[in-house]
Design a binder for these strands. Structure first.
Ligand code: ZN
Ligand code: ZN
Ligand code: ZN
Ligand code: ZN
Lengths: 145, 145
DNA sequence: CTAATGTCTCTAGTAACTATAGCTGCAAGA
DNA sequence: TCTTGCAGCTATAGTTACTAGAGACATTAG
């Protein structure tokens, strides 16, 4: 049995994050020692590793919640899990496409600037007028985490 | 002079967002009508367009705050503005690289799954064990917005 | 035994908004 | 003129996924 600090060290998660995951119901309330400290077994360690790995792959916590409850029912068909992964893949790809458009515009701005005064700065000029842009990049990039 | 609704419609910003920008000091407090309603002139419209365009290119509001105060001093050299743009470009490129690693892992998971039961699902299996991954993708992707 | 570290709960803060509640302003139709 | 309905006002709380702090208790090393 591990205390929360050892569990956190083993999985590379911070201690408050472990408590946070418990608070929102991603981790079940663990046993407690006589002094009321949390004690974790190997199952909890596995579950936490699953959560962290899914987070590292960009899955939102709500998706991870669904994936965890699916993984608790091994006899079910995995189509629901696959759908979650596919949706995440699509989100990642959409974000990459959007960021590539931003990259091009930023690069144009930076390259075209003659490094004189603000009055002539290409960066300031382009930011003030989207007509100077080559691409659309219309929407504000949304957070994926 | 425009009311907040017209200004929002013209710039494609939502009304509460305009008030939010004023609240955090990105937009100056505008004139008010006799009935206490906000009235905006062309300078405010230009400033709001600048903010939105910079947001669309992924700049955080703090960077936009700096860019705006730079653009108010046209006689200064533009190196500070260029540095902000370069930092944003670097952030975008770093994010793209990270997302490409995620994309590959997600694609592997999705492709390798045989679509049987959860017990055999490659998605669930890989999420539970980073050893199954081909890349490192170690860190959790941070929001850029 | 004592001092240092670890853990406990609870609250608040982060970024950039968005949504809600409950009030007032204002223009047009009956 | 009345009214109805949208627009605008303030202020507060919710979103995501944590992170940081305060103040008290538990455990462990020396
Ligand atoms: Zn410049
Ligand atoms: Zn543009
Ligand atoms: Zn599957
Ligand atoms: Zn992995």
């Amino acid at each position: 049995m591990l205390t929360i600090g050892k569990l956190a060290a083993e999985t590379g998660v911070k201690v408050p994050t472990v408590r946070y995951y418990e608070q929102i119901g991603l981790l079940p309330p663990p046993e407690r020692s006589s002094g009321n400290q949390r004690l974790y077994g190997p199952l909890a360690r596995q579950r936490l590793a699953f959560i962290r790995h899914a987070r590292a792959l960009g899955f939102p916590l709500e998706a991870i919640r669904d994936l965890l409850s699916l993984s608790d029912r091994p006899e079910l068909p995995c189509s629901a899990a696959d759908a979650i992964a596919k949706a995440q893949l699509a989100a990642v790809q959409a974000r990459i496409a959007q960021l590539k458009a931003l990259e091009q515009e930023l690069q144009r701005m930076v390259i075209q600037c003659a490094h004189g005064t603000i009055a002539d700065c290409r960066v300031i000029e382009v930011l003030g007028d989207h007509g100077q842009c080559a691409h659309d990049h219309h929407t504000v990039p949304e957070a994926m985490e």
